[in-house]
């Protein structure tokens, strides 16, 4: 009885200390990454290459998802709004939902699943096959040559992808609301134009997506860089990237929403 209690305390202690240890490792890694950013920013073609692989190749999934999310929002929104005789507000409801929340959040979740997991696997495999060590031996810093461009690409891509998600979402809502249900076209767009504020809604939404891009990018390169050099290690690292990124995005969204929109009404 006493032995199992001691084991439990020991296991709990190990659980917490290992996580604190990893957090410290992540902080040191982020510091090293920050130092290498200046070199990476001086070699923008490397970053744009990664923007293509992470961002451009995520376009289709983001655009199609945005379209469907916008359509679903329109169907659900119309059901509620028509009860109060304000179906013409459908455009503004959908636009605010997308620009403020769903655009940045769902885009970040999609990006974590589509691109960040691939970045983790790529860096992890480069480490396992000694490609990073080979680079280091050739006096080329893997942080500035491999890690930093991928991290910057996530930050750079995310706001554009979120904007595309929101745009296709609004188009989806327009197809359902105006073309299929028959809401007035002018009311749909004019209410949206009158009530969606560029600074409060659009810029705050973009700011959110930049923060999400930073978090998701950092998590993906960190998990890849420290992945165990085995098949299981890389699989675990990619899973961790998706899980930790998703939870981080949702937590950050809560914090940012409270900071940005509290007291506006």
């Amino acid at each position: 009885m006493r032995a199992s209690f001691v084991q439990l305390i020991s296991a709990l202690g190990h659980f917490f200390t290992s996580r604190i240890d990893r957090l410290g490792l992540a902080a040191r890694f982020a510091g090293a990454l920050l130092v290498s950013l200046s070199i990476a920013l001086g070699r923008l073609p490397l970053m744009f290459r990664e923007v293509y692989f992470s961002g451009v190749r995520s376009l289709s999934i983001v655009a199609v998802s945005g379209l469907f999310v916008g359509m679903v929002l329109a169907v659900q929104g119309y059901e509620v709004l028509q009860r109060y005789g304000s179906a013409e507000s459908l455009g503004v409801i959908v636009a605010l939902s997308l620009v403020r929340e769903l655009g940045p959040v769902v885009t970040a979740l999609l990006f974590a699943g589509r691109a960040s997991s691939a970045v983790t696997a790529e860096i992890g495999l480069m480490r396992a096959t000694e490609q990073l060590a080979a680079m280091d031996m050739m006096a080329v810093d893997p942080m500035s040559r491999v890690v930093a461009p991928r991290f910057l690409a996530a930050i750079f891509s995310m706001p554009f992808l979120a904007a595309i998600f929101s745009t296709t979402g609004v188009i989806g809502a327009w197809i359902i609301g105006v073309k299929l249900i028959g809401i007035d076209d002018g009311a749909f767009w004019s209410q949206m134009q009158a009530n969606v504020d560029v600074r409060i809604d659009v810029l705050n939404g973009l700011l959110k997506s930049i923060v999400f891009g930073t978090a998701v990018g950092l998590i993906s390169v960190f998990e890849g860089y420290f992945a165990a050099p085995t098949a299981e290690g890389i699989a675990t690292a990619t899973t961790r990237t998706v899980v930790i990124s998703s939870l981080s995005v949702l937590l950050l969204d809560l914090l940012l929403t409270v900071m940005m929109f509290r007291g506006l009404s």
Binding site: T129, E130, A133, A134, M137, M138, A139
Partner: peptide, 22 residues
């Protein structure tokens, strides 16, 4: 780090499985 990289420009290394950039 900078001095080490300076030295490594004069050191070549062949890794066990080549470590070519895939």
């Amino acid at each position: 780090q900078s001095e080490l990289y300076g030295l490594r420009r004069k050191i070549g290394m062949l890794f066990q499985f080549g470590a070519l950039f895939t």
